[in-house]
Design a protein around this nucleic acid. Structure first.
Lengths: 240, 240
DNA sequence: CGGTTGAATTGGTTCATACCAAAGGAACCG
DNA sequence: CGGTTCCTTTGGTATGAACCAATTCAACCG
């Protein structure tokens, strides 16, 4: 097919099959280059399908991506049209934000939020919540090989800490981060490298973090979370 | 098919075809009722397809919805599994978060986000966006008495900086902060005290901040935003 | 008993087709 | 000229089939 020569135009932060990605890139490139001008009707799905040599289903998947990003609008019976570039983002949804974030973006915001988040949690977390956090930690330490289970419990662990700050805004921001984490392709890859040894490593670190929180040792807790972040960044850089 | 009797179980926030919605509701109901227990493998897509009397593609669409909402996880070659229910609020909306945040919460998260946000914006903001930011500043400086207009433009100013980081997650988090800011009663009160003199004060500070950003002076920009934050906190404490 | 192999199962992707409903336009009629 | 009708085009939905890749697990072999 004639999709190969497209310059990677539309970053695919979400997992997307190569074929669909290629179609998205092709059409996005034609919009960007002005081949399809603003408010112009682009070729029908059936035409694109035969022109690009892919099935109409595939074309539709690509158009759905472009529509969800606000680049085109579609009207049954009429056609698909190029949208004028919107200036201000009209409140993108959680999943849209998460989908358009790179693993680096993720590490950056985590580096900003997590240290202060932990600091506030140490000070503000009620004893009952610390108990609950310990419960979660126990569940996490019971995991030995099941990477999926570990990641799920890890998520609950972080969420509990975020809630422990007592600041709904921080918890809300961190929800966004967790969503992005879940959708990150690269992060999914990292999970593949969650060997039992690595899981044990994580467990030790989270255990230290929990003990620091439980004993209200702010500085230690912040240090542990910073160390953990640095370690994760190292993995992100040094592994496949 | 046996999909009719499902009680509207799963709110369909996005547009979704009736058939897919019915399958989603059915499976969601079975999870909720415990028919599919936590961590249990639910029937294969092909089995569900024939049991529910719909095509496998349709089942897959439904499963994608459930997966995107975090209710199930899927692994190729293994199967689809029910996720443990996350206890906390099921993704509170922006406005809910904003409504339950105190002015102190607001200042805290701003203190965490804004310095690093400015730092990243100084480094990453493209010249074109800096130009646009200058345009916004000009509009802001044209205001003399209209407090409402000033606050609106101020919001655009911050939003532009957040976008300038190039990090959608930061921009997304900051959207949350701005929403909370808008709804904050106390902040609204403060606006009443936005006298012309005070507006001029703000304009000077934002002008300094902009110049620091435009000349790529990271340290100065961060200092200005910190000063600004401290000043706002002072007002919050010392005024009615 | 431990490791390997290979078939069967499962989700992931693409394709071809059919039919529906909305929109548009041309032909027609008043 | 205005409206109606009817056919065509377009996106929207659903189906069934085929193949791929990851996973599982039982049978097998050393």
């Amino acid at each position: 097919m004639s999709l190969a020569q497209t310059t990677a135009a539309f970053a695919a932060q979400t997992q997307m099959s190569a074929t669909v990605q290629a179609v998205v890139d092709t059409i996005f490139g034609r919009i960007r280059s002005g081949e399809y001008a603003v408010d112009e009707r682009l070729p029908s799905e059936r035409t694109l399908s035969s022109d690009l040599g892919v099935a109409r289903n595939t074309v539709r998947e690509a158009l759905e991506v472009l529509e969800s990003h606000g680049l085109i609008r579609r009207r049954a019976g009429s056609g698909s049209f190029v949208n004028p570039q919107t200036k201000g983002a009209p409140q993108p949804s959680h999943s849209e934000i998460a989908a358009s974030s790179s693993p680096l973006d993720l590490q950056v915001i985590r580096g900003i939020l997590e240290p202060d988040m932990v600091r506030l949690a140490v000070v503000n977390m009620p004893p009952r919540d610390i108990e609950a956090l310990g419960e979660i930690l126990s569940q996490m330490e019971a995991v030995q090989t099941d990477a999926d289970a570990f990641v799920r419990i890890e998520e609950a662990f972080y969420r509990k800490i975020a809630a422990g700050t007592g600041n709904p805004l921080i918890a809300g921001c961190y929800d966004l981060v967790i969503d992005a984490c879940r959708q990150s392709f690269r992060t999914a890859q990292l999970r593949r490298h969650l060997t039992p040894a690595r899981i044990e490593d994580y467990q030790k670190r989270y255990n230290s973090l929990f003990n620091a929180i439980a004993s209200r040792d702010t500085d230690a807790a912040v240090e542990y979370i910073k160390l953990h972040l640095i370690e994760e960044q190292r993995q992100l850089l040094h592994e496949p």
